[in-house]
């Protein structure tokens, strides 16, 4: 017997869904052999109906993923590889360390800049489904700021931030005496 080919249907409004979900919606089981009038099984015939609710739920989940992604990413790589790198570099002030930390600093700043593109993929769908992404965006910003704070703190611990008295010493002018005195042993 020839193998069963999955039958596919045209389904609309599933963009933005992961591939597995999409597949589940479009594939509706095996094609019945030609001429067979009665369906073999009823259970295979269960129609998957995409409800608005489900879509909304899905978009919501997606939005959270995007919002928490920088934090997660930092936790994953940061705690793993980067932390190891930072630990290896130490907190001493030398050129490699400064370059590395600057590179680290660029990440969250770039992330903050790219808040639009990050949510763009789901923005349209979310609008359609009337899902409010504001809270997610705020969380996204908070996450990026958190990472930024961590790296700034690191800069501080390296002594690269002008927070101590020593950094402002040059603003104190060397003063000149008003009086003039001179002398010595008589000639």
């Amino acid at each position: 017997m020839a193998p069963n080919f999955p039958s596919r249907r045209w389904v609309f409004g599933v963009d933005g869904l992961p591939r597995s979900e999409r597949n589940a919606l479009t594939v509706s089981g095996a094609i019945e052999p030609t001429g067979q009038l009665e369906p073999r099984e009823d259970s295979a015939q269960v129609k998957k109906v995409i409800t608005i609710e489900k879509k909304r739920e899905f978009i919501e989940k997606r939005a959270w993923d995007v919002a928490l992604q920088p934090g997660k990413q930092f936790m994953m790589t940061g705690v793993g590889f980067k932390a190891f790198m930072m630990w290896m570099m130490g907190s001493g002030v030398h050129i490699m360390n400064i370059i590395f930390t600057f590179y680290q600093l660029m990440g969250p700043i770039r992330g903050l800049m790219s808040i639009g593109p990050a949510f763009k993929a789901i923005e349209e769908t979310a609008k359609e489904l009337r899902v409010d992404l504001l809270i997610h965006k705020l969380v996204f910003i908070a996450c990026q700021l958190g990472v930024l704070l961590y790296i700034t703190n690191r800069f501080g611990s390296m002594g690269l931030l002008p927070t101590s008295a020593g950094d402002w010493l040059t603003t104190v002018k060397v003063k000149y005496p008003e009086e003039f005195s001179t002398g010595g042993f008589p000639m």
Partner: peptide, 10 residues
């Protein structure tokens, strides 16, 4: 007024 001259007497 701001000038002082000192002499050291050994």
């Amino acid at each position: 007024l701001h000038v002082v001259f000192y002499l050291v007497d050994k």
